[in-house]
C-alpha cells in the first residue's frame, strides 16, 4: 500500500497483540484528527480575524473565503477516503488478534478437558 513502514505491525517474528493494533491506529488517528481540526478552525479564525484577506478575489467574483470553505468539503472527503483505506489494515490485524485469542481459548479448554 503506501510507503509507511510496517515495522511494528504483526509480523512472523512478533506475535500479534492489541498494543500493535492500538499503536497502528494511534499513528494514523492522532495526526489525522489534529490535521482536520487545524484545517477546519483556520476557516472561522481567518474569516473572523482577517476578513480583508479572505475577501481577495481569485476567479471572477469568487473570493478566497468561498474557495477555502469549498476546499473543506474536499478535505473531509479526502481524509475519510484515506481513513477507510487505512482501516482495512486495522481490520485485518483485529481479525488476526481475535483468531489467535480464540485458538488460545480452545487450547485452554482442551487442556482442561484432559486432566
Amino acid at each position: 500500500m503506501s510507503g509507511v513502514p510496517e515495522g511494528r505491525g504483526a509480523t512472523a517474528t512478533s506475535p500479534p497483540s492489541l498494543a500493535h493494533l492500538l499503536s497502528a491506529k494511534r499513528r494514523f488517528l492522532v495526526p489525522a484528527t489534529l490535521f482536520f481540526l487545524t484545517y477546519y478552525f483556520a476557516l472561522p479564525v481567518l474569516v473572523g480575524y482577517a476578513p480583508e484577506l479572505m475577501a481577495t478575489k481569485v476567479w471572477g467574483n469568487v473570493n478566497l473565503a468561498y474557495l477555502f470553505a469549498l476546499s473543506q468539503f474536499g478535505m473531509a472527503w479526502g481524509l475519510a477516503w484515506l481513513y477507510v483505506r487505512r482501516a482495512r489494515r486495522f481490520d485485518a490485524l483485529a481479525e488476526e488478534l481475535v483468531r489467535a485469542a480464540e485458538a488460545r481459548a480452545r487450547a485452554a479448554e482442551d487442556a482442561g478437558a484432559r486432566p
Binding site: L29, A32, Y40, P44, V47, A65, F73, A76, A80, Y83
Partner: peptide, 21 residues
C-alpha cells in the same frame, strides 16, 4: 450570504469526529 455558508461547512466536517473517534 457567505456567513451562512459557514454552517454548511461545519455540518459536514463534523462527521470526521464521528468517523475517526
Amino acid at each position: 450570504g457567505y456567513d451562512g455558508f459557514l454552517y454548511s461547512v461545519g455540518w459536514l466536517v463534523a462527521y470526521l469526529t464521528v468517523l475517526l473517534l
